[in-house]
Design a protein around this nucleic acid. Structure first.
Lengths: 228, 228
DNA sequence: ATGTAAAATTCTGTATACAGAATACTTGAT
DNA sequence: ATCAAGTATTCTGTATACAGAATTTTACAT
């Protein structure tokens, strides 16, 4: 997003294969980001007119993007009253985490069976980089790599459905985790858990990885619980 | 859907509370049905012009509905080339079933803990009705009740996220199962499994229910495997 | 007959226009 | 000052209009 907030899609940056950028996708991901980052707060109404003007698009594609996000669960539609950013209760978050935990446990088992050595090495690389960010204290980058690692482990399962469901829950929870800044000792604990995860993955110990992922998620919830 | 296929939404049928029917929802569910029932075949392109005319709506709300379904995973968007009914490979279906199985196993455990006696009685009622349909040989009604039972068990968990994910997978798989007509002996086996399920639920034996649900799904897959 | 290039058509993507619902504002009564 | 009713405005929902991409058809050469 540039300073004005306007979308400059189809700005064909330099050479390379002509990549077809589609306005729809651009709007969707921008809105998603705005929701996740809290620029659009929970419960806030998505004003078609002003939001469209801000993004520099007309209402038609904007509305389509909103419908898309509604199906994704980030936005709520109310008849004759448009759309608003979906508000999650503590119970909602807890529910999501229960499901996410189950999915990650499954992913852990499958990843150890199906992941290639090269792929596992890639996850390890992400992990090492994350640890580096932890040492330096780069919270944002740490956070992103953390997500990337979980996503990568899920991807090892080669199960598109699992990836999709996981991604959906992760997206919804991003907004929460984005807020949840942990203290130093909790942060250290989280890193230690990740250390265990990678070890289990490299040992291809599915049930251990599964267990750690489950525990990790429960702990993550404990760590941010107060914020929600 | 009436004979012509046109949507007669906001046709306020008789008295009762004025129910706000929204065109968007109507289009979405109609398209969903058309996809599930195979009226719109996998891979088939969703022609905005003719589809809109057939439903009696303009392209604008139709496109919004299509975007919604795309996010739901029933429809695939291709830039400058519109939308088409998503085609699932055998691997896709298998992937979905793996996830669905995990979710149902989780649901089984939670349902036994959280379901009230009254709710469990309702599931039993659905089951009895389903068995009646089996005896009479009413396949369609049997099929619907079958789905309803699984949905009901998931609902017992009071976990909105779980319900949603389950519903999404179930919707996608409906198209498959709709095709999968089993022979008499396989059908009998499926009914027997359901019998066990209800028994476990009434005994509130979570791990047993979980196990049965898992097995049931694996068997269901075996039963329709050849069709996909 | 077959393959290719150009023209014509069809279809998608986006913007605008218009109607009706919801909301905000004004006015008047108490 | 407070509240109600009526009016004005804003906003959503749907249809239509227009531009450009993709496809099909046609015309022509080999």
């Amino acid at each position: 997003m540039d300073e004005t907030g306007r979308l400059d899609w189809k700005a064909e940056g330099g050479p390379g294969p002509i990549q077809r950028t589609v306005l729809h996708d651009t709007i969707v991901s921008h809105l998603r980001d705005m929701i996740i980052e809290g620029i659009l707060e929970p419960g806030m109404r998505l004003h078609e007119g002003q939001l469209g003007e801000r993004l520099g698009v007309s209402r038609t594609p904007l509305r389509e993007a909103i419908k898309f996000l509604a199906s994704e669960g980030l936005v709520e539609l109310t008849p004759s009253r448009g759309a608003s950013v979906k508000r999650f209760s503590g119970k909602d978050v807890e529910d999501m985490l229960i499901v996410l935990r189950t999915l990650e446990e499954l992913a852990g088992k499958l990843a150890c069976q199906l992941g290639s050595d090269a792929e596992i090495a890639e996850v390890r690389a992400l992990h090492d980089e994350m640890v580096r960010c932890y040492r330096v204290g780069d919270r944002l980058q740490y956070y992103k790599l953390n997500q990337a690692i979980h996503t990568a482990i899920v991807r090892l399962t080669q199960n598109s459905s699992l990836s999709e469901m996981h991604h959906m829950l992760q997206t919804r929870l991003k907004r929460i985790r984005f807020i949840g800044h942990e203290g130093p000792e909790k942060w250290a604990a989280a890193v230690a858990e990740h250390e265990e995860m990678i070890a289990a993955l490299e040992a291809r110990d599915g049930s251990r990885l599964s267990r750690i992922l489950g525990r990790h998620l429960v702990n993550a919830w404990e760590r941010v619980r107060d914020v929600v």
